[in-house]
Simulated scan of single mutants.
Amino acid sequence: MTSSKNITAAQDIGDQGGTKTMAGMRADYNAHAHPVSGVQGGNDSVLSDPPDQSQ
């Protein structure tokens, strides 16, 4: 499907196999973090803060 306008879905959007949904992928993305190199210890964080995506 190709559209030059905004598209709004009334419900969640899933892939053809039905195993992944947009909401599920968004939750996975928002929960992920990355290792941070060069951490010195003490109060430093070994993982990055997760992204702040609400949509």
Results as ranks from 00 to 15, higher is better:
residue 1 M to S: 04
residue 1 M to W: 01
residue 2 T to L: 06
residue 3 S to W: 03
residue 4 S to G: 14
residue 4 S to V: 10
residue 6 N to P: 05
residue 6 N to A: 14
residue 8 T to S: 14
residue 8 T to W: 11
residue 9 A to C: 13
residue 9 A to N: 11
residue 11 Q to L: 05
residue 12 D to Q: 05
residue 12 D to E: 08
residue 12 D to S: 05
residue 13 I to C: 05
residue 13 I to G: 03
residue 14 G to V: 01
residue 14 G to D: 02
residue 14 G to N: 05
residue 14 G to C: 05
residue 14 G to F: 01
residue 15 D to F: 01
residue 15 D to S: 06
residue 16 Q to F: 05
residue 16 Q to L: 06
residue 16 Q to N: 15
residue 16 Q to S: 11
residue 17 G to D: 01
residue 17 G to E: 00
residue 17 G to A: 02
residue 20 K to A: 00
residue 20 K to S: 01
residue 20 K to Q: 02
residue 23 A to T: 02
residue 23 A to F: 00
residue 23 A to R: 00
residue 24 G to R: 08
residue 24 G to T: 10
residue 25 M to P: 00
residue 26 R to W: 04
residue 26 R to P: 00
residue 26 R to I: 04
residue 26 R to D: 02
residue 26 R to H: 10
residue 27 A to Y: 04
residue 27 A to E: 09
residue 28 D to G: 03
residue 29 Y to E: 05
residue 29 Y to C: 04
residue 31 A to L: 03
residue 31 A to T: 06
residue 31 A to F: 02
residue 31 A to P: 01
residue 33 A to P: 02
residue 33 A to V: 10
residue 34 H to C: 07
residue 35 P to H: 13
residue 35 P to W: 10
residue 36 V to C: 12
residue 37 S to H: 13
residue 37 S to V: 14
residue 42 G to D: 14
residue 42 G to W: 14
residue 42 G to S: 15
residue 42 G to Y: 15
residue 43 N to W: 12
residue 43 N to S: 14
residue 43 N to D: 14
residue 46 V to L: 14
residue 48 S to F: 04
residue 49 D to T: 15
residue 50 P to G: 08
residue 50 P to W: 07
residue 51 P to Y: 06
residue 51 P to S: 12
residue 51 P to K: 10
residue 52 D to N: 15
residue 52 D to Q: 15
residue 53 Q to F: 11
residue 55 Q to K: 12
residue 55 Q to D: 12
residue 55 Q to Y: 09
